[in-house]
Design a protein around this nucleic acid. Sequence first.
RNA 1: GGCGCGUUGACGGAACGGUUACGUGGAGCUCUGCAAAAGCUUAUAAAUGGGUUCGACUCCCAUACGUGCCUCCA
Length: 505
Amino acid sequence: MTLKFHNTLTNQVDEFASQNNGKVTIYTCGPTVYDYPHIGNWASYIYWDVLIRILMANDYEVNRVINITDVGHLTSDADEGEDKLEKGAKREGKTAWEIAAFYTEDFMNGMRSLGMIMPQHIAKATDYIPQQLDMIRKLKNKGFTYRISDGIYFETSKFTRYADFAHLKLGSQMAGARVEFNPEKHNNSDFALWKFTPTGEKRDMEWATPADLLDNNSRSDLERSKITEESVPKGEQIVMGFPGWHIECSAIIMALLGETIDIHTGGIDHIPVHHTNEIAQSEAINNVRLSNYWLHSNHLKINGSKISKSLGNGYRLDDLAKKGFSPLDYRMFILQGHYRNEGNFTFEGLQSAKNRLHNWRNIAALRHQIHDTIQSDNARNTNNKTISPYATSRAIIEAIDDDLGTPEALRIIDEAFSSISNARITNINQQALINLLDTIDSTLGLQLIGSTPDISDDLKRIIIERNHARAQKDWSKSDKLRDQLLSAGIIIRDTNSEVIWEYKD
RNA sequence: GGCGCGUUGACGGAACGGUUACGUGGAGCUCUGCAAAAGCUUAUAAAUGGGUUCGACUCCCAUACGUGCCUCCA
């Protein structure tokens, strides 16, 4: 059983090996908290949640960071335009801090509703301003930065591997002329590490720029300045500013996980700009690889066209809820596809996933209807051909081990469930079923056990009464009791030998 | 202009050079007190045209259509 992931670094499926035996450090680029996430955003977090779960299933101790971008993400990655947070604040008549707090909370609620495992660290960019400034200082001292009128920039031409990660062709790339050219930048691919607040403006989020970062000469004396306003020499104007988008990830990784991490995840759109820049910043300073494995999820389309916040066509979890679909229905929908394939969202597809999940829940509910004793379980184990829980659990984990093969895992589960549902209930080993459900829940996070409570004693009594009525061929009483159960949300199936209840919804 | 991806049955969606994916939905049959469920059966599946091969949905080339990145966006 080996874990394998497609690694953007090598462009192939690599066997996974962590730096420290049994431990994994992992960083996921998190949301920019200026608006509600759409379902495409959630798709990738669902896949990364499965990644965490399969690492845990392989007995790794996971140390994971998700960052919250609450400052500095401009409306354009080319370092033009407005800060998204400040823009959101204007839109809603709040401060940028209020906007960040509100949407951060919303994000966390979404994580919970989708059944995600919470990361060990949720790191807000604004909590790591000193660390970001410190990185900029290090870059400056190594000669990777320059200052122009609106900020401090990273000089990409000095990082010779810059184009390698994304296989960029920097020369021909800009031929489309869609990009605004900042004439002060040395290279088009150069990006802002620190932006200055424009003169006369007051931002909700801004910090004093340390004086030593402002001069154009590199200083080797790191101790010379502290990140306080006092560091600005008397008589000089304090220049306020804020971090560029990319530096936060490098700084947070360094602060919480170290110079080299095991796995870095994000969407494919991050490859050419954000992750390329992260690598440049971090590796320019540390001279070691930033991450050994880079996993990127493909995008989800909606009805065949791309989702874009700027186009405003993205459904949110709320929109699905209004049409009667739960977050876990959506989770099932996403797990049906592979994270590296482009998905296409339709409500038909979501309905199909919802039905599948519902059927799975009714299999899970069978565990309440089996009354095994330990002895009888042991007796059954010897000739129980209906379910081999150990083999099935193993097969599920192996499927996911292989580059997060969730569609294959679902197929295996369907096979196992279909043999369970074909079996007579007395032939199902209760503990085996529970173990299997547990494997499914722990690897796929579908909460089969949590979402399938036993029915009440009252309902059980009605079922028994109905069984008596049927035995006496009192069909009218039997049917009446069946209707009663139905109105309580319970469907009754009479098989040849037994009576099984299922959830209606 | 540069770089890339996709095209599988009603819908979603996998694997694999030679075997029924699987799920959801439709139709028919069996079973059944009725129903439900289940089982079985079923619908011209691989965009098109070439090539490689004993054999291709699976590899190669071309064409068509769609789509992504090179602004924002997972």
